Amino acid sequence: MSLEEHPQTFNAITKGKRGISTALVLKIEHQLGLEEGALVVLQAYYDIQKIKEKEIKSTPYLHILSKALFWDTDIEHIDWERRYRSVIQRVFERGNENDKNEIIRFYGAEKVNRALQDSNIRSPYTIYRSNKTTD
């Protein structure tokens, strides 16, 4: 059976690094004798999951963050990736523990540490995550 596709294409698809085109789905279904549209459903689930992942990663959980932190801006329109340094600095200067924990969850401890080190906020707020396990 030959689908006239590059092996790299199938490799990326099976690893979830890319979607599959409708044209390729139809070729595969035909070659495997599957009902037309069977794999399109799987592609739709893949597309939905990717959108959900992007939405989850694009903003922190806004219901957790204190409203007073961003009193001077529309929190719905913050570019969380471009403004991460100022967001982290603001939260660690003015926020409570829930605010800080949400920002650490959203950006990750490493990115928060780097942003804090680059700012004038020092040790009492620096997050240390140890890879050591206790026995």
Rank of each mutant, 00 (worst) to 15 (best):
G19K: 04
E5V: 14
G19E: 02
W80N: 05
Y128V: 09
E102H: 07
H6S: 15
A68T: 14
V112H: 00
A12H: 12
G16Y: 06
I103S: 05
E110L: 11
I56T: 15
Q89R: 11
E93D: 11
G19T: 01
N113M: 14
Q8D: 12
S21W: 01
K27A: 02
I20N: 01
V91W: 05
N113I: 07
Y84L: 14
L69F: 08
L42D: 10
T73I: 13
D74R: 03
E5W: 04
V41S: 10
V112P: 00
K57F: 08
K132F: 12
K111V: 14
N120V: 06
L24S: 03
G33W: 01
Q117E: 12
E36H: 10
T134I: 11
T126L: 06
P124S: 04
G19R: 04
D118V: 03
K50W: 07
I104D: 07
V87E: 10
E76V: 04
N120S: 07
Q117G: 03
Q49F: 11
K50R: 15
I51N: 09
A44Y: 06
E55N: 15
V87D: 11
V40A: 15
T14V: 09
N120R: 10
F106S: 02
S86L: 09
L34I: 05
G33F: 01
E53Y: 07
E102S: 07
Q117S: 09
D72V: 00
I78L: 04
R105T: 12
V41R: 12
K27T: 01
L24T: 02
Y46D: 11
K15S: 03
E102W: 03
S66Q: 15
K27G: 00
N120H: 11
I127R: 08
L65R: 10
I56G: 05
Q49T: 13
E35T: 07
E110A: 14
Q49M: 12
